[in-house]
Computed example of a mutant assay.
Amino acid sequence: MEMIAERGLEKLTMAALGREVQMSSGHLLYYFGSKDELLLRTLEWSESRLGAERGRLLARDAPARERLDAYVALYVPDGRHDPHWTLWLEVWNRSLTAAEDARDRQGAIEGAWHRDLAALVVEGVSRGEFRPVDADRFATRLRALLDGFSLQVAVGLRGTGRERVLGLVGEFLDESLTP
C-alpha cells in the first residue's frame, strides 16, 4: 500500500516491490503466484483494517444518521490517487479475466460493506430515525451511488472533490431517509 501511495500502480512491478522489501521477484511470485494474487491479498489486508474501523464506527452509541455519515466518510476516497481506491480500481479491472475464486473473494469484501450498511438502515428504521425503506434495496442503491462518486473522486474528475461528494450524498440521505 505504501508503494501504491507513493508511486502509483503503474510503477508497482514485482521487481520494484522485491527491491523495496528486500526480496527477489521470484520469491514474491513463489509466495503469491502472480501479481493479481498479490494485489488481491493486499486489498483483503487493507479491507480487513477498514472493516475493523467500520465496525468501531458503527458500534458507537450515536444516532443512526451520525453513524451512517461516518460510514459514507469512510467509503469515499480521500482524493485523487487514494491508494485504497487505486488498488480497488486495479483489482476490479483485473477481475474481468480473474478466476472465479478471485471474484468470490472480491464479492466477500463487497458483501461485508453491504451487510453493515443494511443492518444500520434496519436499525435506523426500527428506531424511527429513518423513514421505512427496504434496507437491502436501499443499501444496494446507496453503494452504487457511492461507487460512482468514489470513482470520480479517485480519478480526480473536476467538480467531484471529496467534500462536494459528501455533500451530495448527504442530500440524497436527507431526501431518502428523513421521516
Rank of each mutant, 00 (worst) to 15 (best):
Glu10Met: 06
Phe149Ser: 06
Glu2Arg: 14
Asp36Gly: 09
Arg115Glu: 07
Glu10Leu: 05
Lys35Ala: 01
Glu90Thr: 08
Ala154Phe: 03
Gly161Cys: 03
Gly148Tyr: 13
Ala73Gly: 15
Arg94Asp: 05
Ala64Pro: 10
Met1Leu: 05
Ser176Met: 05
Ile109Ala: 10
Asp78Ala: 10
Asp174Asn: 12
Glu171Cys: 05
Arg41Gly: 03
Leu68Thr: 03
Met1Ala: 13
Val133His: 12
Leu117Tyr: 10
Val125Ala: 08
Glu66His: 01
Ala62Gln: 05
Thr97Ser: 15
Trp113His: 14
Trp85Tyr: 14
Trp92Ser: 15
Ala112Thr: 01
Ala154His: 13
Val165Gly: 11
Trp113Glu: 15
Tyr71Cys: 06
Leu177Tyr: 08
Gly156Arg: 07
Ile4Leu: 05
Phe130Leu: 07
Arg103Ala: 04
Trp113Cys: 11
Leu151Thr: 09
Ala99Trp: 00
Leu43His: 09
Ile109Asp: 14
Asp61Ile: 02
Ala135Cys: 02
Glu6Val: 08
Leu50Ala: 12
Asp61Met: 05
Ala52Tyr: 04
Met3Phe: 13
Lys11Val: 05
Ser25Lys: 06
Leu29Gln: 10
Gly128Ala: 01
Glu47Tyr: 06
Ser126Met: 06
Arg131Gly: 13
Asp61Leu: 06
Val165Asn: 05
Glu110Leu: 10
Trp92Gly: 15
Asp69Met: 05
Phe172Trp: 15
Glu175Ala: 11
Val21Asn: 00
Ile4Cys: 01
Val153Asn: 06
Leu28Tyr: 04
Tyr31Gln: 09
Ala112Ser: 09
Asp116Gln: 12
Ser25Arg: 12
Leu57Thr: 03
Glu2Ile: 02
Gly51Cys: 02
Trp92Phe: 09
Thr178Met: 06
Arg105Glu: 00
Met23Pro: 01
Ala102Pro: 04
Tyr30Lys: 13
Trp92Glu: 14
Pro132Gln: 08
Asp36Ser: 07
Arg60Trp: 03
